[in-house]
């Protein structure tokens, strides 16, 4: 298990079929379109991340909570449940499993703060604790989650990857939690995709920038920490300098290495020699990926999924979320009658 991903429940039970996930979204998609649904989910991932930051969790705790949240919604619709209660409970449970237990009241307080502008958070300790049971059941009591961060660190060491690149790749991993890749792919593949993005895709972008006199060296140039252990939850998203967001428009740069001589035609090969000291040698990396004994197609799928996130992110505005939620929760009148009697009794 812990030492062996292949025998873990994550691998044997929680690498999912896309059809199953699509099935769970059906109900929601009757009310909002897929982009809107993605944005609503992104908003909740953001809430989880914010609370994690405020309570100074390690990134792994936030990641586990987000994975629980995603797994829950592979079996339920957003519409028929309250994502804020689900999110709070996911955080609470993830803290225990990641060995940094928090008092439930603490998390409730943070939820209230985070949701002040969106319906508030009307649950007390017993409601969250009660929901923990439902969550455990939905997770089928499989609670140990693998994350790509460790894989990334190991590979980076192996590759003698430059610190700033490791950091950027780390940020890409943080962003990857806003997509569903962790439901479909093994963590080491996601780590490889993050490397692929910064070493192959972004290196081209970088070199282009460089040739144009651009100054962007790291995609997420605001990262201040150089130690991956202390890296926060920053992603590339939300930084001013979102070079990656431009990348999706030039998807053509993503080519399977070794497929049809893509690397030979690579416009950056000529300039790479002038980039001495920048660490990434694009051609070498392409070769490195080609030599890996992994399914490169899969890495490219993951890469594309992450990059397409950046295009949705481009026109995401937090202020729109209440309206989106309202559309999602559009009700026939009778549902207003359906007030939880227990909840009412407690008030």
């Amino acid at each position: 298990m812990a030492a062996n991903f292949w025998t873990s429940s994550h691998c044997t039970h929680w690498i999912l079929d896309r059809r199953r996930v699509a099935e769970a979204m059906k109900e929601d998609l009757e009310y909002v379109n897929i982009d809107t649904l993605t944005k609503i989910k992104m908003w909740y991932y953001g809430i989880i991340g914010k609370i994690g930051k405020r309570l100074q969790f390690r990134q792994q705790v936030v990641a586990t909570a987000i994975v629980y949240f995603k797994r829950f919604y592979t079996k339920n619709s957003m519409r028929s449940t309250d994502p804020s209660l689900v999110a709070a409970t996911c955080i609470y449970l993830a803290c225990k499993i990641e060995e940094c237990p928090q008092h439930i009241k603490h998390i409730i307080q943070e939820m209230k703060h985070a949701l002040a502008n969106l319906g508030g958070f009307d649950y007390d300790t017993s409601k969250v604790a009660e929901f923990e049971f439902y969550l455990l059941e939905e997770l089928e009591f499989y609670l140990i989650v693998y994350h790509p961060y460790r894989d990334l660190t190991l590979i980076a060491k192996d590759l003698k990857l430059e610190e700033s690149n490791l950091q950027t790749a780390w940020f890409v991993l943080n962003d990857s939690y806003r997509t569903d890749v962790c439901l479909f792919y093994a963590p080491h593949m996601i780590a490889l995709a993050a490397l692929y993005i910064i070493c192959v895709v972004h290196a081209e972008q970088y070199n282009d920038n460089n040739n144009n006199g651009g100054s962007g060296h790291s995609i997420a140039n605001s990262g201040s920490s150089s130690n991956p252990n202390t890296m926060d939850d920053s992603g590339i998203l939300g930084h001013n300098n979102i070079h990656l967001a431009q990348l999706n428009s030039s998807n053509s740069v993503i080519k399977a290495p070794g497929a049809g001589g893509g690397s030979q035609n690579n416009p950056t090969t000529s300039s790479s020699s002038s980039n001495e000291g920048q660490g990434i040698n694009n051609r070498n990396m392409v070769q490195w990926f080609a030599d890996l004994n992994v399914d490169i197609e899969e890495i490219i799928e993951i890469t594309q999924e992450i990059l397409s996130l950046y295009s949705i992110w481009k026109d995401y505005e937090e202020e729109q979320v209440p309206a989106m939620m309202q559309a999602l929760k559009m009700e026939f009148d009778e549902s207003y009658e359906l007030i939880d009697p227990q909840l009412e009794a407690m008030q």
């Binding site: 449940t81 508030g120 549902s335």
Partner: peptide, 14 residues
């Protein structure tokens, strides 16, 4: 905005 959202309850789910 608080009023904008329909009440979300989990009765049916539970």
């Amino acid at each position: 905005e608080h009023f904008d959202l329909p009440p979300m309850n989990m009765t049916e789910y539970k």
